[in-house]
Amino acid sequence: MKQLQQYIQREGKALQARAMDQMSDSDKKVSRVPVSRPEFTISDLKKAIPPHCFKRSAFRSFSYLLSDITVFFSLSYIFTTIMTQPMHQIYFYMTCIVYSVIQGCVFSRFWIIGHECGHSAFSEYKWLDDTVGFTLHSFLLFPYFSFKYSHHRHHTKTGSLEQDELDIPLLKSQVPSIHKHLTTHPVPRFLVITLVLIFGVPLYLLVNFRGRAYNQFASHFYPFSPMYSPNQRAQILLSDTALLAMLYGLYTLVSLKGFAWIALVYGGPHLVHTGMLFVVALLHHTHPLVPYYDSTEWDWLRGSLSTIDRNYGILDTIYYQATNTHVAHHLFTSIPHYHAMEATRAIKPILGEYYRYDGTIFYKSLWSAIKECVYVEEDESKGIYWYNNKP
Rank of each mutant, 00 (worst) to 15 (best):
Q9D: 15
R10Q: 14
K28Y: 09
K28A: 08
P38A: 05
I42N: 12
K46L: 09
R60Y: 13
S61N: 13
L66A: 14
V71D: 00
T81P: 01
Q85I: 13
P86G: 05
G104D: 03
G114I: 05
G118T: 03
A121Y: 01
K126R: 14
D129L: 03
T131R: 13
G133W: 00
S138P: 04
F142N: 06
Y144R: 07
F145T: 08
F147Q: 10
K148M: 11
H152L: 12
K157Q: 15
Q163G: 08
L166K: 08
V175G: 03
P176N: 09
I178M: 11
L182M: 11
H185A: 13
V187K: 10
L197I: 08
V201L: 10
L203V: 05
L203T: 01
L205K: 02
V207P: 00
F217Q: 03
A218R: 00
F221S: 00
P223N: 07
N231P: 05
N231Y: 10
Q232I: 07
L238G: 06
M246G: 05
F259A: 12
L282Q: 13
H287P: 05
L289K: 13
Y293D: 04
D294H: 11
W298G: 00
I308F: 02
D309M: 08
N311T: 06
D316Y: 04
Q321E: 15
Q321V: 08
A328S: 13
H329N: 07
L331M: 06
P349Q: 05
F362S: 03
F362P: 02
F362R: 01
Y363H: 15
A369W: 00
C373E: 11
V374K: 10
G383E: 10
